[in-house]
Computed example of a mutant assay.
Amino acid sequence: MLEFALAVTLMLSTPGPGVLSTAGVGAAFGARAGVAYVTGLFLGSNLVMLAVISGLAALLLAVPAVRMVLLVASTGYLFYMAARIALAGSKVAFIQAQAQPGIRAAVLLQIINPKAYVVGMTFFSGFVIWSDAYWSEVVIKLIVLNAIWIPIHIAWLYAGVALERLNLPARTQRAINIAMALAMLGVVGLALFSTQ
């Protein structure tokens, strides 16, 4: 169970559309709007986990053509996000929103977020804890996942609110962007490795 909790912490902490947009909403619209946005991400994330647990995601991925299209699209999207972050120059590369997004926008983001499906499949098929008690394992994993998910997303929200107030030197901002992009490429590597 400790390995599972560590994997959850590492995978959820890496930059992806959810946490980067959370920081962006916090930076652009403040903590109150950010909490509503995180609520939507939470709901959407759990919908994705239910799709994974129920087998709906696996059913779609069982069709080789669909699986290849989703793999290419997801990998391409994550590479695009990494490049966008790394090449943002001297501005910390949170995903900026022009209009204040709400709960609905956040739920939809999670439903189309390829990282959410990779994470869900990795957690629910890659870490067998009790092979003879599947539903107990699923419930415990959901509790652990959400117990880690919530503070990580609140921390990213706080980071967005706090970093907007700081006047960081350009060099520091570039270093942050490169570190986030490398973490995103690590997610791409994990996604590709998990398909083998």
Rank of each mutant, 00 (worst) to 15 (best):
V35F: 05
A88G: 10
V52F: 04
K141T: 11
F124V: 03
L190D: 10
A162Q: 13
L71N: 10
L71P: 03
V52A: 15
Q98E: 10
R104V: 12
A170P: 11
G102T: 10
F193S: 10
A191E: 02
L50Y: 01
L168F: 02
V118Y: 02
G24Y: 14
M11W: 05
A28C: 01
T9F: 09
I103C: 06
L50I: 08
A65M: 08
F4K: 10
I152L: 08
Y80D: 05
T39W: 11
T39K: 10
P151S: 07
K91A: 07
P169M: 01
I140V: 15
Y158P: 14
L185N: 02
L61T: 00
L71E: 09
P15F: 09
Y80K: 03
K141Q: 12
V35P: 00
V144Q: 14
E3H: 11
V128K: 15
N46G: 02
V187F: 11
I112S: 14
I154Q: 09
R104C: 11
F42M: 12
I152K: 04
V19E: 05
G160I: 00
G189T: 08
Y77L: 12
L166Q: 08
L60M: 12
V188N: 13
V119M: 15
Y134P: 06
F193C: 06
M184V: 11
M180N: 02
I150L: 14
V107E: 07
F127V: 08
A116D: 15
N167F: 01
A88D: 09
I85P: 06
W135Y: 07
Y117A: 07
L163H: 00
N46W: 10
I112M: 11
L43Y: 13
T14N: 08
A51W: 06
M68I: 13
D132P: 00
S45I: 13
R67W: 00
I112V: 15
A82P: 04
R165V: 01
G44C: 09
V119T: 15
I129M: 15
G18T: 01
P64L: 07
L157P: 13
A88K: 04
L109C: 02
R104I: 14
L168Q: 03
M184T: 09
A86F: 09
V92S: 04
A36Q: 05
A83W: 00
S45G: 14
G189N: 09
G40P: 05
A159V: 05
A73I: 11
A86L: 04
V66T: 12
T172A: 15
V52C: 05
S125C: 01
L142C: 15
E137N: 05
A58F: 03
S13N: 02
L163K: 05
L56C: 09
T14G: 06
F127N: 10
L192R: 10
Q100S: 14
A23W: 03
A170I: 03
L192Y: 15
V52H: 04
V107H: 12
I178W: 07
K115I: 10
F123Y: 03
I178S: 09
I103L: 07
L50F: 03
Q173H: 11
A175L: 13
T75W: 14
V138P: 00
M49S: 02
L6K: 05
L61I: 04
M1C: 01
Q98T: 05
L157K: 04
V92E: 00
A62I: 07
G76D: 15
A27M: 06
